[in-house]
Design a binder for these strands. Structure first.
Lengths: 222, 222
DNA sequence: GCCCATATTACAGAAATCTGTAAGGACATA
DNA sequence: TATGTCCTTACAGATTTCTGTAATATGGGC
């Protein structure tokens, strides 16, 4: 089993909970904790330099911003930075995030080894993840593999995203039209915008613009 | 200091984190945990019947519903039931809830003794709360009087939330109106719904319904 | 009872949305 | 060149949204 683990999580209660699980249930005792991304990075660097590197990183994605000035704002940057130095370190993300495409992105782009969603059964999942990752498995949660179809099948080009963005900011199609003209983006007729948005309605099975934006927000595309 | 404490919290990682804090930082070792309201109630009853009652209850408000059938759905009912048997037990609520009026209600109606909002500094707050409550203080968080954040200032009642919910699902105001009538909820005129939503526009500085739903989604209220 | 503030409701008109049809242009293929 | 497809655009009409005004109802304090 892993012998040296780094836990990065700003909510100290969760932080301590993870440590207790690792210690009591899995028998890992050499654990360091960090409440800030930068802090985690420094501890990682120190261990790496001293040739006693961490074998596993368990990290949250979002870290609250506060007085301390942080160069790294999110767990994603932390993972990238750490992996660039020690590519073989195992990474398990522990986060509130439950949007399938975001989670898939973590596996596909960052090649994380496991994912645990915060929730009542997180303990069971965490234990399973640590065990699985130790055996070199990629612990992609089963819920998301089935569900990826909807959002990943639909191809959204730049204009689609721009429209969704502007609509979610409350601009009317007339306003969006003038913006498009100003930015010399074509097509830019109201009619074309209507057609585009109507197609998005079909794709996402939305009843109207408000519904569409709500769906897209839930999917994490916005 | 307290010698016997009951922790009710369905997220086991948070659960374990609290126990670790109480044990390591405060020196309380006689701690029992419960992941369900009913379970917490049974443990409380047992201790009370055996004349070795708990002195402090630390509980979450919301408990995930799952397969187990629970007679108590929320921490509020748990507190009421426990207080009806042992009125002098101290209660600290540990919850995600950050709406001032909800938190104030807990102090005013349920007479809880302390409140800790889940967050990065929850550990410090929890330690302070336990200490303060032990000295018979009511630990009402200072933030809720001189509130800063936008979302916490705005009071959203059940109808507001229902409207936001329905709008985000793409229903027209006419449809929502008929739903309200069917559920015998009043007010239910289109005009009233318009007024309500217009007020939400003001509160959240939204330009239209789509914008409003996007803002509320971003704030995590929906 | 009366007054007052607030909430509900009806109504109306301007603006925006949504859904069609139809015409013209771009582009690839035969 | 001719043909078909896809995309853009214009336009029109029905529906919905949004914003007013005004009448009525509700509830609390005097």
């Amino acid at each position: 089993m892993f012998t040296k683990v780094l836990v990065a999580e700003d909510y100290e209660i969760a932080n301590q909970g993870i440590i207790k699980i690792l210690s009591d249930k899995i028998g890992i005792h050499n654990i360091q904790e960090a409440k800030y991304c930068d802090d985690a990075y420094l501890k990682f660097r120190k261990a790496h330099n001293e040739k006693e590197p961490f074998e596993l990183l368990i990290t949250d994605l979002s870290f609250r911003e506060d007085h301390k000035i942080q160069t790294r704002a999110s767990g994603i940057e932390l993972i990238e930075d750490i992996r660039s130095i020690q590519p073989d370190i195992k990474v398990i993300v522990y986060s509130q995030e439950n949007r399938p495409d975001k989670i898939n992105m973590l596996f596909d782009k960052l090649h994380i080894n496991g994912y645990v969603c915060k929730g009542p059964d997180a303990v069971k999942k965490l234990i399973a993840n640590v065990g699985g990752v130790y055996q070199n498995n990629t612990m992609r949660p089963p819920e998301i593999t089935n569900n990826t179809a909807v959002s990943t099948m639909i191809h959204l080009d730049d204009l689609d995203m721009l429209l969704l963005e502007e609509l979610s900011h409350g601009f009317t199609k007339k306003e969006i039209r003038t913006k498009l003209i100003k930015q010399k983006i074509s097509p830019n007729s109201e009619s074309s915008i209507d057609k585009r948005v109507s197609k998005l309605f079909d794709n996402f099975k939305a009843k109207n613009t408000t519904h569409l934006v709500a769906i897209v927000k839930d999917l994490g595309l916005l």
